Amino acid sequence: MAPQSLLVAGVGDIHGRFHRVEAWLDALAEARGRPVDLVLAVGDVEAFRHADDHRRKTAKRAMPAEFAEYADGVRTMKRPLYFIAGNNEDFEALHDAPEGMQLAPNVHYLGRAGLKEILGLRVGFLSGIHAPRFYEQPLKRPRSLDTAKQAGYFRAPEVETVAALRDVDLLLVHEWPRGLPQRAQEREVPPPGRTLPNYWIGNPITRRLVETVHPKWVLCGHSHRAFAVTLGGHGVKPPTRVACLDQATRPDESVFWMEFQGREVVRAGWGISGKESWGGGQPWGLASLPAPPEPEPVGTGY
Results as ranks from 00 to 15, higher is better:
Ala65Ile: 09
Pro192Gly: 04
Val168Thr: 14
Ala2Pro: 03
Leu139Cys: 11
Ser5Lys: 14
Tyr135His: 11
Met101Gln: 00
Ala163Phe: 07
Gln4Ile: 11
Ala248Gly: 08
Pro290Lys: 01
Asp13Cys: 09
Val213Met: 04
Glu276Trp: 08
Ala68Ser: 04
Thr195Pro: 05
Asp52Ile: 11
Asp246Gln: 13
Gln261His: 15
Met1Leu: 08
Thr249Lys: 13
Ala131Thr: 12
Arg133His: 14
Val74Ile: 15
Pro35Glu: 13
Asn198Ser: 13
Val11Met: 04
Pro181Leu: 09
Arg187Lys: 13
Val36Asn: 02
Pro204Glu: 15
Lys60Thr: 12
Gly274Pro: 00
Lys275Ser: 10
His130Thr: 00
Phe67Met: 03
Arg56Val: 14
Ala156Ile: 09
Arg61Leu: 15
Leu165Val: 11
Leu38Asn: 01
Glu188Gly: 01
Val42Gln: 06
Glu89Gly: 06
Arg122Ser: 06
Glu99Cys: 03
Pro293Ser: 13
Ala291Arg: 12
Ala248Cys: 15
Leu165Cys: 14
Glu99Gln: 13
His222Gly: 05
Val74Ala: 10
Ala41Asn: 05
Gln261Tyr: 08
Thr300Phe: 10
Ala148Lys: 04
Phe227Gly: 00
Pro238Asn: 13
Ile129Asp: 08
Leu172Lys: 04
Glu175Lys: 07
Leu38Lys: 00
Gly124Ala: 15
Arg122Asn: 10
Arg267Phe: 10
Pro181Val: 13
Glu46Lys: 01
Ala51Phe: 07
Thr147Arg: 07
Ala226Leu: 07
His50Arg: 14
His15Glu: 04
Arg143Cys: 13
Pro190Ile: 07
Asp90Ser: 10
Glu259Cys: 10
Ala31Asp: 02
Leu28Arg: 03
Val42Glu: 02
Arg250Gly: 11
Thr58His: 00
Gly281Thr: 13
Pro142His: 06
Phe134Gln: 10
Asn203Ser: 08
Arg79Trp: 05
Arg263Asp: 07
Phe227Lys: 06
Glu136Asn: 07
Leu25Arg: 03
Arg263His: 11
Val255Trp: 02
His234Met: 09
Asn88Tyr: 06
Val266Asn: 07
Asp37Phe: 01
Gly301Met: 09
Ala62Ile: 12
Ile118Ala: 08
Gly280Asn: 09
Lys78Ala: 15
Arg34Gln: 13
Thr206Phe: 06
Thr249Leu: 05
Val45Asn: 03
Pro293Ala: 08
Pro3Thr: 09
Glu136Arg: 13
Arg34His: 00
His222Arg: 06
Ile118Tyr: 02
Gly235Lys: 15
Asp72Thr: 12
Tyr109Asp: 05
Arg187Asp: 09
Gln182Phe: 10
Val8Gln: 05
His19Thr: 15
Gly271Gln: 03
Ala248Asn: 04
Val229Met: 01
Ala151Tyr: 07
Ala71Lys: 04
Ile205Cys: 04
Met1Gln: 09
